[in-house]
């Protein structure tokens, strides 16, 4: 086993996820979609790692794989010293208390037929022996923790506002005091004013409980606000990873640059140049050869069509995978293990 630094909570190595759908007589034909292609990632204790990228780039799949809601087809994931891909079903269920997920739309992730108190009690009933008054007390405590109260306990999800429902989902995730939370676009189904409240609540909870977040979003300004580090994904791969500030101030990968230039700036005189990407995201079922971004890259070179770019360190904890950074191919290509 590779020595993992004490400060690292989760380490993922070469995670690949391939979805295979069979069709035709007796499933003779198959359709393969590579949603994740050899993704490496390390998450430090107490940090928030943001994942950004277009729809369909695999960011949600990555989040689901990291807590093994779906099992990746290849790779290793170590959470707090436990190799989670090696666990059997019951050990995995047991480990669920350590890692939780909050979904995009609370109205679909909460069973419409259950009441709030039952929804929040579900994780406690599953993993603890709490019952009766003690259970009720803990449920109320959890609701207060996320800014709700006893008056919400007997309501059904449809009787809550979007923000309230997302708070219920959050209190479910917090119920077992997990170490690691995957937040899958937790604010994108909400009104802008409510988004800010939820984001602030998330920050408070992180501080209070020392939580580690993986924050998935396509909203760059939200990600910038909450994340310590940001990973940019394109077609199932991480193309750039750096601290929040570095991503926004000195993006290295052309895709990151295009993404950042697309965020609106509330200053008509900023004079910032917009990079408009041509074309559509290629299908992950048939990704382009070489650099996956070459079909849309404004700086495309010959080598991009032939060879997949390696990750280059471009600063303290900042790397990007682009041939533009191949200054002297022999010495600048670095081992990912060293950066993290």
């Amino acid at each position: 086993m590779i020595a993992i630094q004490e400060s690292t909570l989760l380490r993922a190595e070469k995670i690949s996820m391939e979805f295979v759908s069979r069709y035709g007589f007796l499933g003779r034909h198959q359709h393969r979609v590579r949603a994740l292609d050899s993704v490496d990632l390390e998450i430090q204790r107490g940090e928030t790692l943001g994942i950004v990228g277009e729809s369909g780039c695999g960011k949600t799949t990555l989040g689901r794989c990291l807590i093994r809601l779906i099992t990746p087809t290849a790779g290793r994931i170590v959470l707090d010293g436990v190799e989670i891909l090696a666990l059997d079903a019951s050990a995995l269920r047991h480990l669920r208390r350590e890692m939780q997920m909050v979904f995009q739309n609370p109205f679909s992730s909460l069973n419409p037929r259950m009441k709030v108190d039952d929804l929040v009690a579900e994780p406690l009933r599953t993993h603890t022996d709490l019952a009766g008054g003690a259970l009720e007390e803990r449920v109320e405590e959890l609701l207060v923790e996320v800014g709700l109260g006893a008056e919400h306990m007997k309501r059904h999800p449809h009787q809550l506002s979007g923000g309230q429902a997302q708070r219920v989902a959050l209190s479910r995730a917090l119920a077992l005091s997990p170490k690691f939370l995957v937040l899958d676009e937790p604010t994108s189904a909400l009104d802008v004013s409510v988004q800010a409240q939820i984001i602030n609540l998330l920050s408070q909870l992180q501080e209070r409980h020392g939580l580690t977040y993986l924050f998935i979003s396509h909203d760059l300004s939200v990600v910038r606000h909450i994340s310590d580090r940001i990973a940019v994904m394109y077609l199932g791969q991480i193309v750039e990873l750096a601290s929040s500030d570095a991503i926004f101030n000195s993006p290295q990968h052309p895709y990151t640059q295009a993404l950042i230039s697309s965020t609106p700036v509330p200053d008509p005189d900023s004079g910032r140049e917009r990079i408009i990407l041509e074309g559509n995201v290629p299908s992950p079922a048939n990704p382009p050869a070489g650099c996956r971004f070459h079909t849309r890259c404004p700086y495309v070179m010959d080598i991009c069509r032939r060879q997949e770019p390696k990750a280059h360190a471009v600063g303290e904890g900042h790397w990007a995978a682009c041939h533009l950074l191949d200054k002297a191919p022999s010495d600048s290509v670095i081992d990912l293990q060293l950066i993290n």
């Binding site: 269920r93 047991h94 979904f103 679909s108 909460l110 579900e122 994780p123 599953t126």
Partner: peptide, 16 residues
């Protein structure tokens, strides 16, 4: 549906 996946995420067993 997402609430079934959420239940899996919580660690609820299949029969439940």
């Amino acid at each position: 549906r997402a609430f079934i996946e959420a239940a899996h995420g919580i660690g609820v067993n299949d029969l439940t």
